[in-house]
Design a protein around this nucleic acid. Structure first.
Length: 1155
RNA sequence: GCCCUGGUGGCGGAAUCGGUAGACGCGCAGGACUUAAAAUCCUGUUUGCUGUAAGGCGAGUACGGGUUCAAUUCCCGUCUGGGGCACCA
């Protein structure tokens, strides 16, 4: 009776499935335990041997806990939405739902093959409408809620509305626009559009603007992944950053709670540290620098346009730029300011534009004058103004309450048309309607013109603006650059300012002289990724704006630069540069020859910035002589008098939640007159309710992007345009479904709620969560936030999802390479290179050729004989030969030796290739450790290992490879050893000739000691997730038991190994005569009475160096031990008669004699 | 660049709280069984020197310092592999 793992494993897999032994009930008297794996994205490549590493670990733990008497929830499902399926669809035309279904089936088969104890009746798939109905539902909860900073929790938006009606927002600052203030009365006066606009600034799920990679050539938005070296990965087309309206989650409001509650979690310090850094809390001050008014004039709008066109080679006017900021919708009209000019003008440019306005007023054209007289006399019912400043323009006529701009133009020519189009776009972006008339039209038939104006005014709804104020800065004609600094103590060391190139002020402060340079620089920056901008520190780039700010304390003027190293999304998008104290600022100052103020005395050498945080501040007015801590406090106090303030800053940014993709959750959002409503809002429009959940993803014909970079859904007109309104066409990102899936497993088939409260109250948090560190900040942060939000809104009873987190390392691939002769660099036109044959040189011979001329000559001769064109390399004999390195499928390589015949079949173009072999007649491949991936031909399928050795061997071998959290390359070397161990274990129970050999003889003390030592070790190892040492201990145990077949020993052993090797354990359990699954057995208990030793062999060291071994009773007295040791001959010899200095006796450990 | 993490024999790794470095397995070498092979079993295997041998002496946990009676373990610095850096999941 031999160990027939194929038969055993098939049999018990079927038994487990038939008897539903893994089915878990929500109703149990046992204590609960929730063990979860990060669910996989079902890629087309299938599972490789790296994936199951964590799954095996969690499976061992789940089985162990079950044996220990727990009710264990151990589910599995699929993160089924994602970009790869969509890309695959674009390439092959297959619908992502189809390929995903296929991939999941394969994953399922592979997982089952390994014998995991998942309760598949609880499987979830994020792409299933029954699942994403609740993803949408949770999104709506976030949309319908806001964060109350006083109570530090999310609350329903309804409650905010009540507050705003009563008292305005005086006590509840608007997180989307901190400058927005209004009273209860003002709130009530707002139109619905304005109110919804304000609420949007409060919502946990809100709309704002963010930059995406836009690829003109592909007409689509690209992921960071798809942009390589500044061009698109597919096709290599140029890409640029584009500002798009997007959904966001206001995770920043949770920053403090996400930070502090980390302390309650049993995660590794490294993991917590990563989250802390991601959240990036820093204490410091916000400082305001007033933009100085200088003699040098800023360009007029029209001058600016011309300049810009010149800079861009006259291509795209970009007047809608400069909105900046991640979440950038400005609030509605600041209703407390009565001056209508003030309401529409760009304040920073007011002083510059104002004279132009007056000039234009005094020099009206004939047509303008005619129209003005007509407008004044015809009772239009609304006030029309002329020559009015809007943003950076002077509009000919404007009707503010109706947001209408009327322009009267001279002769239309191409240049002017372009300018006008840009201007119209700028104004329309800000909610104005623009109508144009030519001089001829006005002069020829002014009545018709007035009639048209009337019609348009009628159609224009009042106050339908998203944004009319365009305001920033706090006073007329003034602008401020706000910076956040963690080092207010260095305020007197500020030598210049640096703005992010995308900063909204750049357009307004740049002088005429610098305008062209700034535009050119910004064009360059657009092509750079954030990663590049942060990492390439050696190369200093930047551009002077021509503007200056006033230092808030000294009043000195400081130049304002822009540079790519300042990112718009970080802090305020601007920094005060202190070159003597910051490395990058220092490099910048040196590069652009900006004089450096030294505030650190001798510690700053002029060569390198002094960025340490100790010592005193010097050369800093009243801060001089203070420590950094004191100076920080004193500086903040002083700055507070000039508009600065103490501030806590977080690096965390709001999470972008829109994707311009097809294969993701549709948003349950409906636009009515361009105002977004939640699909569940009780609003009736055109006699239609907005809709119900789920909003199902419609079928599409193709996956091409929609117009203007929208997602593919925008192409389906029938779907977008509904009776009730217009649907949102973006979809949710990958992390939407995965942010809450652990809750769904608790109650996966519930159609009335995402999960019944009873179920979530029973299962509570995940007790053990296993997954890779690559999720450290993405998935783990978002799911923590969702959990907190659901908790705040009263849907669940806990606010942290994952109590204990265990990180699994990666199993990397070990790639193999072949070396092919190539003719690069041997341009010899007399040869027909199309006839060049494939020649591969063995790796070891390539290496020998580097230092052995004979080998080199031999290889060259070989090439000459086999290259099909004869003697191509001879002319280059001195240099040798060029090789290209190509990956080869690892299945064609045994260790490092290439299966040459297999290789020829694998790549038919090489079927006639010649191989230069080594002296043993082998072709040796090169090797490199890389990510395991299909494209690198280094993927190893677990199915192959399982069919060769069995699932039990595979499970134990993966664990035996090393600690669960350490990454290592896959290598099957050694799997034989584990397989041999299982065979050896089997032989404790059964013999090939004699069959079943378990006896009822009583065990010896030594055998019991071995067993109980093993029980204790396995128990401890599982508790601390040290599975590799468990496997070792099993091996030691079986070795020590030698030929013991006693039931008293081998029955507990069968239970003990069940978590690791469930199939063989089940087989042995039943063969031992037990009924039911081994999972219902009890985990054996280690009994101390078999384990206690009376004596211990101590290592005895002299001065820390072990010189002898001596045996003592475990409870031997110090004095007795000391006298015995000192009397020992070997010890005496090593003491060399020197006196005893110290005698160290650590009970149960060792003895050290210090002389 | 920044953050995290690792580096121990020919290889995967062990040493759980600062206490005999190299457990266990692979590989390799030698041997037993066998007509032979497979399977199985036994012995040896960090390294240098020394000894016929039992053994003895020294070095050694990426590198350079430090703390300690004692350091793979703690501290400082350097080199180096891997992961993450906000639209891959």
């Amino acid at each position: 009776m031999e160990y027939d793992f194929r038969k055993i494993e098939a049999e018990w897999k079927k038994y487990w499935a038939d008897k539903e032994v893994y089915k878990v009930s929500n109703d149990s008297a046992k204590p609960k335990c929730y063990v979860l794996d990060m669910f996989p994205y079902p890629s087309g490549a299938g599972l490789h041997v790296g994936h199951p590493l964590g799954y095996i670990a969690s499976d061992i733990y789940a089985r162990y806990k079950r044996l220990k008497g727990y009710n264990v929830l151990h589910p599995m499902g699929f993160d089924a939405f994602g970009l790869p399926a969509e890309q695959y669809a674009m390439e092959t035309g297959q619908h992502p739902a189809v390929t995903t279904e296929k991939n999941i089936a394969r994953y399922r088969e592979q997982l089952d093959n390994i014998g995991f104890c998942y309760d598949w009746s609880r499987e979830v798939r994020t792409s299933d409408p029954k699942y994403y109905k609740w993803t949408q539902w949770i999104f709506l909860q976030l949309f319908h809620s806001w964060y109350d900073r006083t109570q530090q929790k999310a609350r329903p938006i309804k409650e905010l509305i009540v507050i705003l009606e009563q008292e305005g927002n005086e006590y509840y600052a608007c997180p989307g626009d901190e400058t927005l203030t209004f009273s209860g009365e003002q709130w009530k006066d707002y139109s619905e559009a304005e109110q919804r606009n304000v609420l949007m600034q409060y919502r946990m799920a809100y709309q704002g603007y963010a930059q995406v990679w836009w690829c003109e050539a592909l007409g689509t938005v690209l992921a960071n992944d798809e942009v390589v070296n500044g061009v698109s990965e597919r096709g290599g087309h140029p890409v640029e950053r584009k500002n798009m309206r997007q959904w966001f989650l206001r995770i920043t409001e949770y920053a403090e709670r996400l930070l502090t509650s980390l302390d309650t979690l049993d995660w590794t310090d490294a993991m917590k540290e990563m989250q802390r850094n991601w959240i990036g809390k820093s204490n410091g001050a916000e400082v305001q620098f007033r933009v100085a008014q200088r003699a040098s004039p800023q360009p007029s709008p029209k001058e600016r346009e011309v300049l810009r066109d010149t800079a861009r080679g006259g291509l795209t006017p970009a007047l809608s730029e400069g909105e900046g900021g991640v979440a950038g919708l400005t609030g509605p009209v600041a209703a407390n300011n009565e001056d209508p000019t003030w309401r529409t003008a760009d304040k920073t440019l007011y002083d510059k534009i104002s004279p132009l306005q007056n000039e234009l007023k005094n020099h009206q054209t004939e047509a303008e004058d005619i129209l003005w007289q007509e407008v004044r006399n015809s009772k239009l019912g609304v006030k029309i103004r002329r020559q009015h400043i809007v943003g950076r323009f002077v509009a000919d006529f404007i009707c503010i309450p109706k947001n209408l701009v009327i322009e009267v133009d001279g002769k239309i020519h191409a240049e002017r048309e372009k300018e006008d189009a840009a201007r119209t776009e700028y104004l329309e972006d800000r909610g104005f309607k623009v109508i144009r008339f030519t001089n001829d039209e006005v002069i020829g038939n002014v009545t018709a013109v007035i009639e048209k104006i009337k019609r348009v005014l009628n159609d224009q709804n009042e106050n339908e603006l998203r944004d009319t104020s365009l305001s920033f800065g706090e006073g007329r004609g003034e602008a401020f650059i706000t910076v956040f600094t963690t080092r207010p103590d260095t305020i007197f060391g500020v030598d210049f300012m640096v703005l992010a190139p995308e900063h909204e002020l750049v357009d307004n402060i740049t002088t005429v002289e610098q305008s062209k340079a700034i535009d050119e620089y910004r064009t360059y920056v657009k092509s750079r990724s954030e990663r590049e901008r942060m990492s390439e520190v050696k190369q200093v780039t930047g551009c002077f704006t021509g503007a200056y700010v006033k230092h808030p304390l000294t009043g000195n003027e400081l130049p304002v630069w822009i540079s790519e190293y300042v990112l718009v999304g970080y802090g305020t998008g601007a920094i005060m540069a202190v070159p003597s104290g910051d490395d990058r600022d220092h490099a910048f100052a040196k590069h652009f020859d900006i004089p450096v103020t030294n505030i650190f005395g001798d510690r700053y050498t002029g060569e390198k910035a002094y960025s340490d945080k100790n010592g005193v501040i010097e050369n800093s007015d009243f801060l001089s002589g203070m420590s950094i801590k004191e100076a920080t406090e004193a500086a903040i106090s002083a700055l507070e008098k000039t508009g600065g303030k103490r501030k806590v800053n977080y690096r965390l940014r709001d999470a972008g939640f829109s994707r311009q993709r097809y294969w993701g959750e549709p948003f349950p959002i409906m636009y009515v007159d361009d105002i977004p409503y939640g699909n569940d809002e009780p609003i009736v429009h055109n006699n239609h309710i907005l809709g119900e959940l789920p909003v199902e993803l419609p079928m599409v014909e193709h996956y091409k992007p929609g117009p203007e970079g929208q997602g593919p859904l925008a192409n389906i007109e029938d779907w977008v345009e509904t009776e009730a309104g217009e649907r949102e066409t973006n979809t949710m990102p990958g992390y939407a479904g995965s942010s809450w899936y652990f809750l769904r497993y608790m109650d996966p088939h519930n159609d009335a709620a995402f999960a019944d409260r009873k179920a979530t109250d029973y299962w509570q948090q995940v007790d053990l969560y296993i997954g890779g560190t690559e999720h450290a900040v993405g998935h783990l942060l978002y799911s923590r936030m969702w959990t907190k939000a659901l908790h705040d809104l009263g849907h669940i009873g806990f606010d942290e999802p994952f109590k204990k987190l265990l990180n699994q390392g990666m199993i990397q691939g070990s790639s193999r390479f072949v070396y092919k002769f190539s003719n690069s660099g041997h341009i010899q036109p007399e040869y027909d290179f199309s006839k060049l044959a494939s020649i591969f040189i063995s790796k070891d011979m390539v290496e020998e050729s580097h230092h052995d001329e004979n080998v080199k000559a031999d290889i060259l001769e070989f090439i000459k004989q086999n290259d099909g064109i004869n003697s191509v390399v001879l002319a280059n004999k001195k240099q040798g030969f060029d090789l290209t390195q190509n990956r080869v499928d690892v299945s064609l390589v045994d260790g490092y030796e290439l299966n040459v015949e297999g290789f020829k079949k694998w790549r038919p173009e090489n079927s006639n290739a010649a191989f230069y072999l080594n002296r043993d007649g082998k072709y040796i491949c090169g090797a490199e450790v890389e990510k395991m991936s299909k494209s690198k031909y280094n993927v190893v399928n677990p199915d192959d290992i399982v069919s060769q050795y069995g699932a039990d061997t595979f499970r134990m071998y993966e664990m035996f490879l090393g600690p669960i959290d350490v990454s290592k390359p896959w290598d099957t070397k050694g799997i034989e050893g584990v397989h041999r161990f299982l065979k050896k274990l089997w032989r404790l129970y059964a013999d090939e000739q004699q069959g079943w050999i378990v006896t009822d003889e009583p065990a010896t003390a030594a055998e019991l000691k071995t067993l109980h030592k093993t029980i204790r070790k396995i128990n401890d190892d599982i508790e601390r997730f040290s599975f590799n040492t468990s496997v070792s201990q099993f091996m030691i145990c079986v070795n020590e038991l030698n030929n013991c077949h006693k039931r008293e020993i081998v029955q507990p052993l069968a239970v003990l190994i069940c978590p690791f090797a469930p199939h063989i354990a089940e087989e042995l359990w039943h063969k031992l005569g037990n009924e039911g699954t081994v999972l219902d057995a009890a985990f054996p208990v280690a009994e101390d009475r078999y384990l206690v030793d009376n004596t211990k062999v101590y290592p005895v060291a002299v001065n820390g160096r072990t010189r002898a071994e001596m045996e003592f009773a475990i409870d031997a007295e110090d004095t007795f031990v000391q006298s015995e040791v000192l009397a020992n001959e070997a010890i005496q010899k090593w003491m060399e008669g020197k006196g005893l200095k110290k005698f160290i006796y650590v009970k149960g450990k060792m003895i050290n004699v210090v002389v």
